[in-house]
Design a protein around this nucleic acid. Structure first.
Lengths: 193, 193
DNA sequence: GTTAAAACTGACTGATCAATCAGTCAAATA
DNA sequence: TATTTGACTGATTGATCAGTCAGTTTTAAC
């Protein structure tokens, strides 16, 4: 692995675990096994390093979403929605550190001064909510989902599955046992008018 | 207002707006209009000041919950749950700054070294989820709510209303129009088996 | 083998921070 | 009036931080 890549991963881990402000560049250097100066050779500033991490996250969410749509077929919209719930949990598990960064306020803070952070954040959230919205629209068309607002219900479902991921991340509750109840709840919400 | 109280409120505002780490004690002093040293006369450290804020928040949630239970009567459990949704949104609006502090990671970070932070956080969250659980149990007894798991569904409903508050706080979506859909969703979830 | 560019180093700088402390001051008490 | 006490001040301290830079090492091209 390239030095730059190693620095990138070490920083991702530390920003996720400790937060942006709480992580010093010397810690990143120490964890990577390089001198402090090396980091600034590859990334022009601490903020630049963070931006690179967020950009890669955005791209990964994009790519994974494409892969999911292309490699799955659904019998109907309701089926697609249940698959989307799985997909969300899968995403959150393979990108656990990036999701933790999303749950922290660091990126929002930086977005106030650097609008590119805002753009990336918006893009990530739009994609995540979109997954459910597309499934609901599809379900309304094929009749597997009742006449409900796609956008609003997508957001409600997003808040539930996202909350479940948070419970899991913060180890506040066994999210596994909550999952079945979540699926049931979604079915109830979407099959009644 | 006492000096100590003024410092307390200035710090609450700053910790909510900028975050704990990002707020310097000299900023708190400046906003309050006192010398830096005065803060350390009243609070032995920055952490101690934050702890005081979180403790007061915990007590306020406690008190407000008591007031709500004592001053309201409900025709049945489902009615109580809908009132609980209102109550949650009311709490989040009158304690907007404290909720923002809850959404930040600062307190969780400090909880790793100082378990009292953990205790306060747990107490706050327990109370917030409890509101919904109590309503569901009551509804199951009076028949207005179907045979569903009180704890799990309380947590799902908590994630939804909490997500709605977050949308509102971060101004990502007009939470007002989402509220009606949330109430409908809760009714669907709780009245079917 | 020579040369040039790219990668890397770590001591250093200036800024910022939480916390300290010797001392001021006004109000309360004797 | 004299003394004590509690509230307050702000210059200072030592630690930590992001970022710099002059110099070294490695790699690649010829």
């Amino acid at each position: 692995m390239e030095r730059k890549e190693t620095i990138f991963h070490a920083a991702t881990r530390l920003f996720a675990d400790k937060g942006y402000k709480e992580t010093s560049m010397s810690e990143v250097a120490k964890l990577t096994g390089v001198a402090q100066g090396t980091i600034f050779y590859h990334f022009k500033s601490k903020e630049d390093l963070f931006l690179a991490i967020l950009e890669e996250f955005k791209s990964n969410v994009n790519d994974e979403f494409e892969k999911w749509v292309n490699n799955h077929s659904f019998s109907n919209g309701l089926d697609m929605l249940e698959s989307a719930l799985d997909f969300y949990l899968y995403l959150a598990s393979i990108m656990e550190d990036r999701f933790m960064i999303l749950y922290r306020h660091d990126a929002y803070e930086l977005a106030l001064h650097n609008p590119i952070f805002g753009q990336y954040l918006e893009s990530i959230y739009d994609h995540l909510v979109d997954i459910f919205e597309k499934a609901i629209i599809s379900g309304r068309n094929d009749g597997s989902i009742a006449d409900v607002s796609p956008k609003k219900n997508a957001m409600l479902i997003f808040t539930m599955v996202d909350g479940l991921v948070r419970f899991n991340t913060y180890k506040l509750y066994d999210a596994g046992t909550l999952y079945d109840e979540l699926v049931k709840a979604c079915r109830k919400i979407l099959t009644q008018t």
